[in-house]
């Protein structure tokens, strides 16, 4: 019974890390510079979840974030010839590369992560309730 608390807790942490990635994508929706200040558009991040056999009872594994991946998709090109990051030569002259992030998808994912977090909180409440009921028998 105690270990189902661990399972729910692992899911809470995983969903929060996922929410971190999503908020980072939304925050950088029009970022055209990278950390070094070079004109490279931000690439969206996403997390990979993996079942964690070491958490929880055998047969009911928890979850953990295996890795945070960078989505290498083609940037969105906007025509802004006056922009300092605009391409100077070639067929894309005058275009600025913006991150290819869909706000609708990110918001839906954020909502899903929040709901999953709430669901796991609900599971924790139920587990806690059951434990309380059991302990009431002896004390």
């Amino acid at each position: 019974m105690w270990s189902s608390l661990d399972v729910s807790t692992s899911a809470l942490t995983a969903q929060r890390i996922r929410l971190h990635a999503i908020t980072s994508n939304l925050a950088n929706i029009s970022t055209t510079h990278n950390e070094q200040g070079e004109p490279t558009p931000y690439q969206p991040r996403f997390v990979i979840f993996q079942t964690a056999e070491e958490i929880g009872p055998p047969g009911a594994p928890g979850v953990r974030v295996a890795s945070v991946e960078v989505d290498e998709k083609e940037p969105l090109w906007k025509y802004q010839p006056g922009h300092p990051d605009a391409v100077r030569s070639g067929p894309m002259t005058g275009y600025v590369a913006y991150p290819n992030i869909n706000m609708m998808t990110e918001m839906t994912d954020a909502l899903e992560a929040a709901r999953a977090y709430e669901a796991n909180l609900g599971a924790i409440e139920i587990t806690k309730d059951l434990l309380h009921q059991t302990l009431r028998i002896i004390a």
Binding site: T9, V68, I124
Partner: peptide, 24 residues
Amino acid sequence: LPEMILYHDDGTKGLEYQVSEMLK
């Protein structure tokens, strides 16, 4: 701790883990 993937300072973090251990 699972949340270490977000940080690169070698610290161990995990609010949910600590709270759930506190509950137990």
